[in-house]
Design a protein around this nucleic acid. Structure first.
Lengths: 154, 154
DNA sequence: AAAGTTTATCATATTGACATGATAAATACT
DNA sequence: AGTATTTATCATGTCAATATGATAAACTTT
């Protein structure tokens, strides 16, 4: 998978929070229900975003989660950062010393792809995705999950 | 990780085999030694490539592995195909119905990246990578693995 | 046919991502 | 202070990828 499911949860939750008025904490129960995720696991995921400064949280009544960074200044890379495994992107073969004077066989070709990926995560802000959703007509949510033609790479 | 370690082994082994004269079976011991991998696990990996028609194998003395497809006609996607997990590339959020009339918020932007990735694996042949290696001066192999600056996405 | 070599497969172990449910800690309201 | 509410954390479980070592099966040579 290109990003882990936990990172996907993080993006979806942040997008959900970005759609709420700022300054109002949202409880994890509301987010979990809206995204169809389990409360405790999502709580753990969101807490990791708190630790990296993407979200703020509070306990008790009036508690909940909210964005700590303005959507326009929050790239997706910063959201998924804490959920990226140790694996590398820059070398297709996983050679840590790849590049510079010791490139692997695929280095120059793969670099273009790696650049595109990094540019996407660095340049795509939460705000820009909000724009995407708003620009589209609303569709029936129950149609979104029907299984159909899946594609693999290759 | 962008491709699994087993898929990386597969690419490296195929590249190694492509560097050998055609028609001569190479024993898994030789490949495992050259790539610094364990014999049994590599054997299992290579056997999966046999089942998908990328390699041919034979047992006993005179046995071993060899390419079943000419390097120029063998894209990397075909090599890593059997090792790709069920995860999807086309939707960043993992929404199976994403696309067409029901795009997710990131769909149009992520599609460009996904296209670049698919084009890479479909268009990069084993032969084209052989050219890459040959075009570079040989370097001391023991320098290739020294750990240094790792980059994550984001 | 017997011996030796090499791949194929079986049984099992390890690891990390993913996940659940119970409990603890903190906060707000009365 | 006490209680209800909500996040934080702990203990634990599941699963797939990764991996190891032993054994079986197939092939060549003698």
């Amino acid at each position: 998978m290109w990003i882990g499911t936990t990172a996907q949860h993080a993006i979806r939750a942040v997008l959900f929070l970005a759609g709420k008025p700022p300054g109002v904490p949202i409880r994890v129960d509301e987010i979990a229900t809206a995204l169809d995720l389990r409360r405790n696991y999502l709580s753990k995921t969101l807490h990791r975003l708190v630790r990296t400064g993407v979200l703020r949280s509070g306990r008790g009544p009036r508690g909940g989660f909210q964005l700590a960074i303005a959507p326009a200044r929050l790239p997706l890379g910063q959201v998924i950062g804490p959920f990226q495994p140790a694996g590398e992107l820059r070398c297709l073969m996983g050679r840590s010393g790849c590049g510079g004077s010791h490139p692997c066989a695929a280095h120059s070709r793969w670099s273009n792809v790696a650049d595109a990926v990094e540019a996407f995560f660095a340049g795509t802000t939460v705000a820009s995705l909000q724009g995407e959703v708003a620009a589209r007509p609303q569709t029936a949510p129950h149609l979104d999950r029907k299984p159909q033609g899946r594609r693999k790479i290759g």
